[in-house]
């Protein structure tokens, strides 16, 4: 009996130390339940406009519209957000209720939750379905890398970047994208409807 306690004690020490050793590795390893093309294989933390921290997969299980932007952006980013809103407005109420929107900052140093929250309110977007997040500075290029988005910081602090809206399916696989700003892209809209079925 005594022996068994000792063994189970040893076993838990071994389990614990295995966990300690293995845990950092498994964090960056892939989750086997995800399809290999899923964007959610990229395990990075993002902080939203309310300061809440999640993974990129916060809307896993729902189709998601995704874009990269920054809050001090004078022209293009407001247009990006209004294009997403305009696209959403073409959907039925039921369809819209199932769609999520995630906008990711490429300027995490300046895009604090407070700044993100201000933009969030300025555009009066649906807080149940939208979030605006910032990654850690070292993770921005990785996210841009999986999304095929290009960006460059300019000496004046502005950014030059691809203005792309991407549709992820329920598993986080990219199924469509559009570079069209200002008016809804009909083909893209159709892809959204299909993914919502």
């Amino acid at each position: 009996m005594k022996n068994r306690t000792w063994i189970s004690g040893l076993a838990s020490i071994i389990t614990l130390s295995t966990l300690l050793v293995v845990a950092p590795v498994t964090l960056s390893a892939n989750d086997n339940s995800l399809p290999p093309q899923s964007v959610y294989n990229l395990q990075v933390a993002v902080e939203d406009q309310l300061g809440e921290i999640t993974g990129l997969d916060r809307y896993k299980g729902q189709p998601v519209l995704l874009t990269m932007f920054y809050t001090s952006c004078p022209h293009v980013c407001p247009m990006l957000i209004s294009t997403i809103k305009l696209t959403e407005s073409k959907l039925s109420v039921e369809e819209r209720a199932r769609l999520r929107v995630l906008t990711i900052s490429i300027d995490p140093e300046r895009d604090t939750p407070e700044n993100l929250h201000q933009v969030f309110q300025r555009h009066s977007v649906d807080s149940g379905r939208w979030s605006m997040v910032r990654p850690k500075p070292g993770d921005v290029r990785k996210i841009a890398g999986v999304l095929g988005i290009k960006y460059k910081q300019l000496p004046d602090g502005e950014f030059s970047h691809t203005t792309r809206i991407i549709l992820l399916d329920r598993d986080g696989i990219q199924v469509a994208s559009t570079d069209q700003l200002g008016r809804p892209d009909a083909v893209f809209l159709e892809a959204i409807r299909t993914s919502l079925q």
């Binding site: 247009m79 290029r141 030059s160 970047h161 069209q180 700003l181």
Partner: peptide, 20 residues
């Protein structure tokens, strides 16, 4: 290089297809 996906040089990118 780290910023291999930074080679788009002009400022605002409003023109369709410009980024590609």
């Amino acid at each position: 290089v780290d910023d291999f996906n930074a080679f788009l040089v002009s400022g605002d990118n409003r023109e369709q297809g410009g980024a590609d």
